[in-house]
Amino acid sequence: MSDLANPHAADTVAQDSDQELMRQTAAGNRTAFAALYLRHSGSVYRFARLMTGSGTAAEDVVQEVFLVVMRDASRFDPGRASLASYLYGIARHHTRRRLLRQRRFVALEAGDPMHDATTDADPASDAVRACELRRLRRAIVALPSRYREVLVMCDLQDVSYADAASSLGCALGTIRSRLHRARELLKTKMRRAEQSTSVQRSIRCAV
């Protein structure tokens, strides 16, 4: 069975609001559910991937999130939060559970071409950029999760402070202070990583 097989139905649901799609999903409309997935799976995946540093873990989180949507679509209350906030809230819950269980395995996956996707034409510039981005990703994954989640949502996923506060269940002021702290921590970690790389280069030259 292919979702969105009927082009007219697909066009119609593609224009529907999140709220309407959730209502139709709760009523058992497969096309609406598929449209919801298409609309939101990317942001959920990217959030989970940045949080865990693992594409595989992120895939599992996406599945968990949409299984919850499938099961509990009727429980979604648009008056309380936007659908994006609701989904981030679920994703955050599953990401935390996973991180708690697999603390030992949190590491960036090597050899993933998506990690270092570059667009510059200059290979030298590409290499430097890829190196910086890799370092940044590592530094983000190494942040404490309460800071990491705010940074990922607000700085990298363009989630509004209000939506982030709603997803994380905390006050707007808490979001601001955590974000500030997260950026400071990140700068410190990046500086350390830079220094460490310089020292390694010096040692290599000396040898």
Binding site: S41, G42, M114, L133, L156
Partner: peptide, 20 residues
Amino acid sequence: CLREDEAQIEAPAHVRSAVM
């Protein structure tokens, strides 16, 4: 830069198949 990189990333097709 990271946002630009991330914008190209979507959940793999097999995840969608599993969910559906």
